[in-house]
Design a protein around this nucleic acid. Structure first.
Length: 458
DNA sequence: AAGAGCTACAACCGCGAGCCA
DNA sequence: CTGGCTCGCGGTTGTAGCTCT
């Protein structure tokens, strides 16, 4: 389809003669492909003349990188790709090239177009602000909403000293953490640009906790125009086949098989589900939604436990995000799973340092991690493990039942009696109903929460 | 049937950054 | 240090094709 007209202003070659613009013809495509196949692109500026094209080098480069490149994947975006884009956009905003680096075969231009024409509208219809990925509030002065933000910030403030202490960077600064409104954003780190990213050095698990708090907040928002849609957004892969990959490749290694995680941490890295909401298998006594309305101070205790535990390791998450660590794993959606990719071949093009500001390596640089120690909790998980997937993976389920839930549910209060729920509860709507029902209670409790009082933590 | 409006997306533009003489 | 060259990125535009009235 069509681009701009050839009469548009300005693309001149070295001799200032007007070169062709607008849509490429099949003949031009053929010339360009043939030349690059044979000689490589070399200098884009010199290429048009060498290839016999009456185009400027820039036009040739764009045509090649956005359309003619052989490794470009054409066709509709898959559900998995779509979710990956949304998740990554929550992290980095309109950094299309960074997002594209984690979607092999997709170009930044294609992703940008897809976002602008599809995903933005979709999120808006769900009541999610596509800019900041938080619920669109009908009325910003909504009291309950503001109250809840206050509570979240209160929690974060109490958490801040530990977070700061856990920073493994001597040069980075997190000083704004305690004061800014991190919780106002689905981007829990308040990352607005790469500089922000570089400043943030948290341990992985704490990041997951922060995310979970956010999810909790969103699910509890009374101002969300479409709560169900928001739910679907936050836990989008409930019925997705990717759930199996999620458990097999990422989730289980991090959260279940990682024996050196403190028991305190178990249940926090729950794949993007909110704290206390661990929906692996509703037929299991532990796999219950927690009573969200019961235990605000329980959350603080959980955070306290976390901060007094020893994380298995502390890594510079921002380094991984930025691709500074060539061996650092990160996820991609190559095969519908949260696979890990490395940045190992960035050396191929180190000319442009701006290229370091990428989420991962080039599209062809996917590799398995070196060992389990490199595994990370999913920072922007697209999937909460589903009842179905756990059923399909009894080993995982068993491990979860033995180790994962206890601290979380202790922190949030005793789970309701499982047996009260019927067998149909294995589906998505079951959990949704429970959460929706919990909201009313939560709102009431939050409205009575006194922020002036210190909260005692055992 | 035809014109208006909308959608999708290829292609363009301007800018910033790295490299190098 | 400086300025030109080159490239890549994010934002914007133009238009073919589709849908609506």
């Amino acid at each position: 389809m069509m681009g701009r007209s050839a009469s548009a202003s300005g693309c001149y070659d070295e001799k200032s003669s007007l070169v062709k613009k607008g849509p490429w013809t099949p003949e031009e495509d053929e010339k360009l492909v043939e030349y690059i196949k044979r000689y490589g692109h070399g200098s884009w500026r010199a290429l048009p003349q060498l290839a016999g094209l009456n185009r400027c080098g820039k036009s040739c480069r764009l045509r090649w990188t956005n359309y003619l490149r052989p490794d470009i994947k054409r066709g509709n975006f898959s559900q998995e790709e779509e979710q990956t884009i949304i998740n990554l956009h929550a992290f980095v905003g309109n950094k299309w090239s960074a997002i594209a680096n984690n979607l092999p075969g997709r170009t930044d231009n294609e992703i940008k177009n897809f976002w602008n024409t599809h995903l933005k509208k979709k999120l808006l219809q769900m009541g999610i602000d596509p800019v900041n990925h938080r619920p669109v509030t009908a009325n910003n002065s909504d009291n309950i909403h503001q109250l809840y933000y206050l509570m979240i910030n209160h929690i974060l403030s109490s958490l801040a000293p530990q977070l700061l202490a856990s920073s493994s960077s001597s040069s980075g600064t997190c000083s704004s953490l305690a004061n800014n409104n991190l919780m106002m954003n689905m981007n829990p780190w308040g990352i607005n640009n790469n500089a922000d990213l570089m400043k943030l050095h948290y341990s992985d698990v704490k990041i997951q906790v922060l995310r979970n708090i956010l999810v909790q907040q969103l699910l509890s928002s009374t101002s969300t125009p479409n709560v169900e849609a928001a739910f679907n957004y936050l836990l989008p892969s409930y019925s997705s086949s990717s759930v199996h990959d999620h458990i097999d490749h990422g989730y289980s290694r991090v959260n279940i098989n990682h024996n050196n995680y403190s028991p305190h941490l178990q249940g926090f890295g729950n794949g993007g589900a909110p704290i206390g909401f661990v929906p692996q298998n509703p037929t299991h006594a532990s796999a219950q939604p927690s009573n969200l309305s019961s235990n605000i101070s329980g959350l603080l205790k959980a955070v306290h436990d976390l901060d007094h535990s020893q994380p298995p390791r502390t890594r510079l998450v921002s380094d991984k995000l930025l691709g500074y660590d060539h061996h650092a794993p990160f996820f991609s959606s190559t095969t519908g799973s949260n696979k890990i990719c490395t940045n190992s071949n960035n050396n191929n093009n180190n000319r442009d340092r701006s290229q370091q500001l990428k989420l991962g390596g080039s599209s062809s640089s996917y590799a398995t991690p070196r060992d389990d120690h490199d595994q990370l909790p999913l920072l922007v998980s697209s999937a909460a493990p589903s009842p179905e997937s756990s059923a399909a993976n009894p080993t995982v389920e068993n491990n979860i039942s033995n180790t994962t839930y206890s601290t979380t549910f202790e922190a949030w209060g005793n789970p309701p009696d499982l047996m009260d729920h019927d067998d149909e509860a294995t589906n998505h709507s079951y959990w949704k109903d429970i959460i929706l029902a919990d909201m009313a209670n939560l709102v009431e409790e939050v409205s009575q929460f006194d922020f002036r009082h210190d909260i005692s933590i055992n």
